[in-house]
Design a protein around this nucleic acid. Sequence first.
DNA 1: ACCCTTATCGCAACAGAGTTGCAATTAAGA
DNA 2: TCTTAATTGCAACTCTGTTGCGATAAGGGT
Lengths: 149, 149
Amino acid sequence: MPASPPLADSTALIARIHALAARATPARIAVLRLLDEAERALSHREIEDALGTGFDRVTLYRVLDWLVESGLAHRVIDAGRVFRFSLASPANATHTAHAHFRCEACGKVFCLDEIPVPTPALPAGFSGKAVEYCITGQCARCDQSEQEK
Amino acid sequence: MPASPPLADSTALIARIHALAARATPARIAVLRLLDEAERALSHREIEDALGTGFDRVTLYRVLDWLVESGLAHRVIDAGRVFRFSLASPANATHTAHAHFRCEACGKVFCLDEIPVPTPALPAGFSGKAVEYCITGQCARCDQSEQEK
DNA sequence: ACCCTTATCGCAACAGAGTTGCAATTAAGA
DNA sequence: TCTTAATTGCAACTCTGTTGCGATAAGGGT
């Protein structure tokens, strides 16, 4: 187990929260930092485990709701009926399209920001807004460990 | 309330079930017929409501599980954390790709079988299998009723 | 038409993720 | 430092889906 990850600059995180006219509470700072350092979409459970017993379940749910409402994070639903959260990159804060990759082996969900999401033609009368694009398969790590067997 | 919908040929449905070496029970026939007539993906709740009080909750869950396991139906997860089911068209029984449209207003999910699902390039090491492609917006009916206001 | 076997069913109890109400706490502006 | 409204923590709840198990009935054989 490595030492605690290098602390991201708390001041910057606090500023980001204050910019939304919200209070910079420990729970918000901790969740924001965790998501900022994560390279994949995290579930409530994963966040709870990562942060230890310092915060109440419900507080974390509310922090996550707040993140989504304020546009700082995306919420996607996982095949296992759990929500996963990832920070919205400042550029695409207006979440028009977002691609994800879900590994069947480890269950983790990765954000594929760099993949362009095509906008398809819809049947008459239908107007599309957001496009959810999720690819299921094996991630790099699981694919590798499978070959080692 | 219109009269009961025209009964699809029960014999054909029963044959379809027998072809899987399974027993043609009333629950299976009813669910199969309902999904066959539905033009969109139905949730367990919608199926339960549509079929009335004749079947147990759990029985319907098990029928749906059986449909998915035997490849007769697809199961997709909805933004509201509920599973939705749609019959797999015999042609694409091997569910390679499938597109859906979810209406924000009425919550219904439509199958867009005719839309081609593009296969994107993945980061190194990742291997994709299934692609879930879901567009969120307003369906034809809700779009229309909104303009009438 | 009647039996058997066993796949299915129905009930009841459970599990997990997420939500709500409300009193206690605390961030942050005055 | 003081005030006050935004947040928190707790407890209880909802909802979707699952599991165990005895009872029922589909369908093949006689």
